[in-house]
């Protein structure tokens, strides 16, 4: 009959688990980690010589005019 404690899907207790908000938080977390992994991998790429050389040339004044 109407057994309140039968644990049906409608039976939410006080610490009611909302799968939507819970998953939502996990998705945000996952996206955050992925963004950082993406960015960190790029930051760790070796800097090509042409950029280092360019800075050196700029410093030497060889390219001081725009």
């Amino acid at each position: 009959m109407n057994n309140r404690n039968a644990g049906t899907p409608m039976d939410h207790g006080s610490d009611h688990f909302d799968p939507r908000t819970d998953i939502h938080g996990k998705i945000q977390d996952t996206i955050g980690r992925a963004l950082q992994a993406h960015y960190q991998a790029l930051v760790l790429e070796p800097i090509p010589n042409r950029l280092i050389d360019l800075l050196a040339e700029l410093e030497a004044g060889a390219l001081s005019n725009e």
Binding site: I23, K26, I27, D29, T30, R33, A34, A37, H38, A41
Partner: peptide, 15 residues
Amino acid sequence: VQANQEFHMDLLDFR
């Protein structure tokens, strides 16, 4: 990507 237990993802897919 170090995600969490629920989701696995590789960087290329993410990019």
